[in-house]
Design a protein around this nucleic acid. Sequence first.
DNA 1: ACTACGGTTGAATCCTGAA
DNA 2: GTTCAGGATTCAACCGTAG
Lengths: 228, 228
Amino acid sequence: MKELNIELHQGDCMDVMAGLPDNSVDMILTDPPYGIKYQSHGRTKSPKFEVLKNDDNDMRFVAYKEMYRILADDSVLVTFASWKNYHKDYAELEKYFDIKNVIVWWKHGGGMGDLKHTLATDYELAIVCHKGKCKLRGKREGSVWECGKVAPSKMVHATQKPVKLMRDLILKYTDEGDTVLDGFMGSGSTGVACVETGRNFVGIELDEKYYGISAERINEAQTATEGE
Amino acid sequence: MKELNIELHQGDCMDVMAGLPDNSVDMILTDPPYGIKYQSHGRTKSPKFEVLKNDDNDMRFVAYKEMYRILADDSVLVTFASWKNYHKDYAELEKYFDIKNVIVWWKHGGGMGDLKHTLATDYELAIVCHKGKCKLRGKREGSVWECGKVAPSKMVHATQKPVKLMRDLILKYTDEGDTVLDGFMGSGSTGVACVETGRNFVGIELDEKYYGISAERINEAQTATEGE
DNA sequence: ACTACGGTTGAATCCTGAA
DNA sequence: GTTCAGGATTCAACCGTAG
């Protein structure tokens, strides 16, 4: 396999993105904090994961604008949302992009909270934003994608996305050798998916701990795919 | 089975709702025009169905406020949306209601449009809005509901919802003998589901033709369930 | 290869009290 | 008044281990 260009940054995504040229990446696939101060596992005492850094609306909204500049024409930005913050992200993204699809990631499995009065929320939304016209690779598909979530014992980040889901998205919107950007790496699933599918990757993470975890996971994926 | 109270009105839903007392219905289940000037089957010449009447944002937004008044405490309004207008409805409904869930109705099967550049949208969203606290009947459930769509050959309305879907929603949020309101009847599926589940029904439809179709379908359902 | 069983979990929600 | 933080609560599904 041709050698990939993997470029990781620890720091604020606005600072790092400022150094990236216009129209320079072929896809942006990212999962910013939703602005809900999510405390994983409902525990405030000895939580498994800390509350996320950068967890406010303005942060990601400013980033979306900068991402539009960096993204190449005829490419997509895919960003995640829950039904509670979706309407805010939609209204913001609509200013720059053509929103052409919203994919429902059906993750199955229970929810939490007041289950007498509310249904368990077992999906998240992926907003597909076009800059120009990005053609879809592979076979024709619907907008509800079933994919199991990461097993709790294997979780290294509170809101970790499955590599399989990221891989499917990358395969749908890019070609081999393209470059993918993730401004909020978290656990680094996007980067791992890039390595597995032969895409170059630019990853940014503010939190030192998660930067380290991301780098390690991506490195492991590179070792695993060597000699293929 | 106890005799049901079925009350159908042909006219503007604002006019009819003005005559309904506060807190007088136990659920509102409705599917207003989405404000996207939907022309069924992509045809502008000799379309199968005409462009819907009442198809603008303001109409349903004003109606939502009036519906809040009519709805009893500890009950829900369930209204449908697509991902394209969801953010507008959400922002409006949030002013009056507690939005507690958004159900994804996964209808399977392809959509239309530019399939080289967009995925087929094969779901719609049902926004569950609480006035007070409405408890859920039956077993605990997730938020993605699979239900096949109405066969094209049996369609009598451009945006017709399956009776099964409406029945499941009614069973989840009401008890037998409760009263359900639909301010935008369309094909009358909500009314048919009420008859089948033993709920009283108040239905309103502006369009004369669809009012007739609704009345007929509901009437047939009543005949079919007689003697049960 | 499978099944059975028990512990753990969840982009949550409610309530109370402090600031 | 209103916002914010902490602790209790939730249960079907999933995971991991044993047999």
